[in-house]
């Protein structure tokens, strides 16, 4: 069994999620952990789009916004249970991704980047300006999921931080499991093939347009679920979740950790979520240090942290 095998990767992730809380000095760290898992989830979605299928998106925060506001608006406007609202959000994101993906995935490279960027900005503008519905830039409250009270009822008492650490951790594991399944499946290989050579992929019978669209829709659902989890645990959401900066953050996390590697992307999400927390001591230099770290990684480990390190270790082993 190699390090790359699906079960080894899942076991590593599961072990980390289970063991890390032992070292948490305070309950605050559960919140940070949950935030890492949420970010990692949307980044794993981007690994499918960018790493597998080779298509870029600078607008995926738009889908996170749809997922987040579905959980805010669903219970309030439609009387839905928050969990159901989350599913609805994922469905709406999938449909939106299919509708806009169809025309824009014909574009390549930076043209695609700009088109997706436009989509993200559009969602964020709608969320900001439709005040009657979303209360505008001040944000809105989000209903309680209710699952924690239920657990308390059956005798399992968890703090809010612990609860969300657990939920987000589990969802991340499921997300990683699905992404790893996809990697070694017929569809996943078709995605990676069109990444390598579109024309060759077509000659073996791969419907390139359809497979690209599948990657786009799947990654949109990941971002949407991540957005939902974020809004549910914070109990409050602002249009920033759909903002341009959030889209860029996602792509940066994926590229930093290794955009071809599901675990690598998770590591990237962890580092870029943690750094600002660690660097609060040097508040003034935070941006500077983050920028420097990213530049150094891209220069010395251009394939991203995890793949580059893994390749180095393998090279030594042989």
């Amino acid at each position: 069994m190699t390090f790359n095998s699906k079960w080894v990767q899942l076991a590593v992730l599961l072990a980390l999620i289970a063991i890390l809380p032992v070292f948490f000095p305070s309950g605050y760290y559960f919140r940070v952990g949950a935030l890492i898992f949420v970010n990692a989830l949307s980044v794993v979605g981007l690994v499918i789009l960018i790493g597998y299928a080779g298509q870029i998106s600078l607008g995926h925060a738009g889908f996170a916004g749809i997922g987040a506001y579905a959980c805010a608006l669903g219970p309030e406007a439609l009387g839905l249970h928050p969990a159901l609202a989350m599913l609805l959000g994922a469905l709406v994101s999938a449909i939106m991704a299919a509708l806009i993906g169809k025309p824009i995935l014909r574009l390549k490279g930076y043209y695609l980047a700009v088109a997706t960027l436009g989509f993200g900005i559009l969602v964020s503008m709608v969320l900001t300006n439709e005040r009657s519905l979303t209360r505008g830039p001040d944000g809105m409250e989000v209903a309680e999921l209710g699952l924690r009270d239920f657990l308390k009822g059956v005798g399992l008492k968890l703090s809010s931080g612990e609860f969300w650490y657990l939920v987000c951790g589990l969802v991340l594991i499921v997300g990683v499991w699905i992404a790893l399944n996809l990697f070694n499946s017929s569809t996943g290989r078709a995605m990676r093939a069109l990444h390598g050579s579109e024309v060759a992929a077509r000659t073996v019978g791969i419907d390139v347009a359809q497979v690209k669209l599948q990657a786009f829709v799947i990654s949109a659902v990941y971002a949407s679920v991540a957005g939902s989890l974020l809004s549910l645990q914070n109990r409050f959401i602002t249009p920033d979740v759909a903002g341009f900066m959030h889209s860029i953050e996602m792509v940066t996390m994926a590229v930093l950790g290794g955009v071809n590697s599901v675990l690598g992307a998770t590591l990237g999400a962890a580092i870029l979520t943690l750094l600002p927390q660690v660097l609060t001591v040097f508040a003034e230099y935070e941006q500077l240090i983050m920028g420097l770290v990213m530049i150094l990684v891209m220069i010395f480990l251009p394939r991203g942290l995890l793949p580059s390190i893994a390749a180095k270790l393998r090279g030594r082993g042989e």
Binding site: R189, R192, A193, H195, G196, S197, A200, A201, I206
Partner: peptide
């Protein structure tokens, strides 16, 4: 037109 980043076997499987 080879899928360079995939293994030799995966190329044929595709």
């Amino acid at each position: 037109q080879i899928f360079q980043d995939m293994t030799v076997l995966e190329n044929v499987i595709v």
